[in-house]
Design a protein around this nucleic acid. Sequence first.
DNA 1: GCCAACGTTGGC
DNA 2: GCCAACGTTGGC
Length: 138
Amino acid sequence: MKYWLIKSEPDCYSIDDLKRDKKTAWTGVRNYQARNFIREMKVGDLIIYYHSSANPPSAAGVAKVVKAPYAEKEPLWSAVDVGFVEKFENPLTLPVIKINPKLDGMMVTQQGSRLSVQPVSKEHFEVIRKLGMVVSRP
DNA sequence: GCCAACGTTGGC
DNA sequence: GCCAACGTTGGC
């Protein structure tokens, strides 16, 4: 079981869109490194759903792989289907992710990391999920 | 909208 | 195989 992070611009396709659609085909990845990660995905792998180019950018929820990688454009590119798991009550914004020492070393916080599909450690995944589900009260 | 940091392309 | 030019990503 592996853990991943995928980026999407919410204006384009947000966690709410995924919630509504239940699942979607994750196509259009045109970066070799990201493609190689897609090819490593297995059904059941969990995914941090990250909103990029947003105000602020944030980890917005959790998705999962629901269909194994398949060729999108033979033989070059690959895709998977991802399904909705949960939307965070308390999305973790990028500054918050950066500040948390438990989340040190995540690819998404590294400067210039433009990879739209990234591996995430189990520890990092669980910290983000836990914090995301917590509803902060005054 | 700006721009820095990347990845990719293409001439040589 | 180098590297300049170009296009894209994504934080701010």
